[in-house]
Design a protein around this nucleic acid. Structure first.
Length: 448
RNA sequence: GUGGAUAUAGCGUAGUUGGUUAACGCGUCAGAUUGUGGUUCUGAAGACCGUCGGUUCGAAUCCGACUAUCCACCCCA
């Protein structure tokens, strides 16, 4: 088959069969965030391009080659958001939320866009859950954020996602460290791979996570950032670790965790899964104490993380985690013949108005195919309405699980349908008043 | 941007050294005498074998180009 228009590279369709995976994750993620006192915020999918250049960093890969930027009718250029933090900080500032008292805690579930070459766990349109906290320097805040991420992963049923933790210090200690790195690598300059030679000039910290064996070998003897932290940063990091110990959260101090977004300071961390291929970072985040000021606000310390929803779902799948089951219809009404069909349509409507999920035949099938269909969609009850039923005004309500059939009067169908016995099966039955009212409505309609 | 792999019905696959109507499973639809599903049985629909070009009497099968997808590097969620 040759379909003319195909979905853009690096995008995905989420089909009905998979939608419960997303619903499950979205519910887990937002429920847990709310338990920790985070409130949802929604910001535009596109922002002024300058926002990302300023926040993410004008030398970062994301800004230099991965942004979807469009020019609008005026002079302004807009960019599809490549990540969530910048837009949130902008919105907080623009709406005066930095003046409402601290800490401010928000979360979001968003699509984000990056023009990269797709591979396992890496898409051009991907979805991210993120949280941001503003207005506290306390290492307890860092710990709280990490605890939240861990709680979510736990809530999803994941056990083997490893926490990698590091501190990249404040701008002052980082400057010193960069110098030290340059001094260390300079004599090895010629042995380094090409990209690493560039890194040596631009961002020597990235040298540390080069995959090339030679660079790796050289890097193994390189100075470690933790030895260069100033007193304040070191204390902060030590305290964070001891709080995590109190919580019983396992972590591995990993000096290779550096993060590619320029705004990070001090704490950086990643939760890495071994089960989904090369792009194993399910969650990444840290502190960004300088960003709010960079975007024009007062200096406000801040921190947060982003969690890749596709990667989260992939990890859950590969670990055999459970997702919430799809809801199935409470009732299927199988009519036979035109008169019955009209009655069935009205009955279905009444059942729906009473708050239940009901379906009836829309394609004109025979009884047997209808039963098959009712079974396939997982209907909990089926009622057959044919000439006999219309004549006698009585039908049989069949419980599809047990096969049991209970006689019901059509005129009192809603009463019967919402009776205690049946509600037990549904667990979410309606009150008798509503059910009775609906039954009355049906009673009035005697034209059929 | 750089590498590697793959491209056959809605999905998952088989197609041997190129040879008449491209096979199977799942799914879909319809039947298996009287108005009742999940099992079983029978039947049907559904593919110009990614696209274009080449070799050949003849190509899903060989060659080339293109495109798409997947995986890895890079980077990150």
């Amino acid at each position: 088959m040759s379909l003319q228009v195909k979905r853009p590279k690096g995008t995905q369709d989420v089909l009905p069969a998979d939608i419960m995976k997303w619903r499950t994750v979205e519910a887990t993620v937002s429920d847990t965030a709310e338990q920790f006192g985070f409130r949802e915020i929604r910001t535009p999918v596109f922002e002024d391009t300058a926002l990302y250049v300023r926040s993410v960093g004008d030398t970062s890969d994301v800004v230099t080659k991965e942004m979807y930027t469009v020019s609008s009718k005026g002079d302004a250029t807009f960019t599809l958001r490549p990540e969530g933090t910048a837009g949130v900080v902008r919105a907080m500032l623009e709406n005066g939320m930095m003046n409402e008292g601290f800490p401010q805690k928000v979360y979001y579930i968003i699509p984000a866009y990056r023009h990269e070459k797709p591979q396992a766990g890496r898409l051009r349109e991907f979805h991210q859950f993120g949280v941001e906290m503003f207005g506290t320097q306390s290492p307890y805040a860092d710990a709280e954020i990490i605890l939240l991420a861990a709680a979510i992963l736990d809530g999803c049923g994941l056990e083997n996602v490893a926490l990698h933790l590091n501190s990249i210090g404040c701008p002052e200690c980082r400057a010193k460290y960069r110098e030290a790195l340059r001094e260390y690598f300079a004599p090895h300059r010629e042995e380094l791979c090409e990209t690493c030679r560039e890194r040596l000039e631009k961002n020597p910290m990235r040298l540390l996570d080069c995959k090339s064996p030679i660079c790796r070998e050289i890097a193994s003897g390189a100075p470690v950032i933790l030895d260069y932290l100033c007193d304040g940063c070191r204390e902060h990091f030590e305290e964070l670790k001891s709080i995590l110990d109190d919580y019983g959260i396992k972590y591995e101090v990993d000096s290779r965790i550096v993060r590619g977004l320029d705004y990070y300071t001090r704490t950086v961390f990643e939760f890495i899964s071994q089960d989904i291929g090369a792009q194993g970072t399910v969650c990444g985040g840290g502190r960004y104490d300088g960003l709010v000021q960079e975007l024009g606000g007062q200096p406000v310390p801040a921190l947060g993380f982003g969690m890749g929803l596709e990667r989260l779902i992939m990890t859950m799948e590969s670990c055999g985690c459970a997702f919430e089951p799809e809801k199935t219809p409470d009732l299927y009404i199988a009519p036979m013949g035109d008169a019955a069909r009209r009655k069935a349509a009205l009955l279905a409507d009444a059942v729906r108005q009473a708050g239940y999920a009901a379906e009836t035949d829309l394609v004109g099938r025979g009884l047997k195919p209808q039963m098959r269909y009712a079974d396939k969609i997982g209907a909990k009850f089926v009622v057959v309405i044919g000439d006999n039923e219309l004549e006698t005004g009585e039908a049989k309500l069949k419980n599809m699980r047990s096969g049991e059939e209970t006689p019901v009067k059509l005129s009192e169908f809603m009463n019967a349908f919402s009776s205690e016995l049946i509600n037990e099966v549904f667990e979410n039955g309606l009150g008798d008043e509503i059910a009775g009212a609906v039954a009355d409505e049906i009673e009035k309609d005697t034209s059929l």
